[in-house]
């Protein structure tokens, strides 16, 4: 039985192994963040400091919005109008490059680190 499906087992273990490796790499490269950046439809619309507690509503279309809460250096979505509520159920974020994603409202909240986000490559100024 096992011999017959040896190839299959190797295959599945390899897929899981790669996933696990990626997961470990992603976890190890995380740093605590300074700001959260909110993008909607691919465009940056707002930026907030993580060490300032606040609550903001992010409007999308008529009657559609997400409420972002920043508390104790962590950000999470407390309320959303989307039907799946996935963003509300996601864990709070605080490390660089962690994201909260709301697919229906095309919104991404991303944690960024110390560096100024918009440095002009030519002049070096932000």
């Amino acid at each position: 039985m096992i011999r017959k499906y040896k190839k299959d087992i190797i295959f599945i273990v390899a897929i899981l192994g790669v996933a696990l490796l990626l997961f470990i790499v992603f976890q190890l490269t995380k740093k605590p963040g300074k700001y959260v950046v909110i993008t909607q439809n691919g465009k940056e619309i707002a930026k907030y400091e993580l060490n300032e507690d606040r609550q903001v509503s992010i409007p999308y279309q008529e009657g559609k919005y997400n409420v972002l809460v920043i508390r104790d250096q962590k950000a999470y979505i407390s309320t959303a109008t989307c039907p799946d509520q996935l963003c509300v159920k996601q864990r709070s974020i605080s490390k660089v490059n962690e994201t909260l994603v709301c697919l229906p409202n095309k919104m991404v909240v991303k944690v960024i680190g110390d560096e100024p986000p918009h440095v002009d490559i030519m002049s070096g100024k932000s």
């Binding site: 997961f23 691919g42 991404v108």
Partner: peptide, 16 residues
């Protein structure tokens, strides 16, 4: 669609 490359962080869990 969201031009956010960090979504790749979901890859390991989505593979599993």
């Amino acid at each position: 669609i969201m031009s956010t490359k960090e979504i790749i962080y979901y890859l390991p869990i989505l593979v599993i």
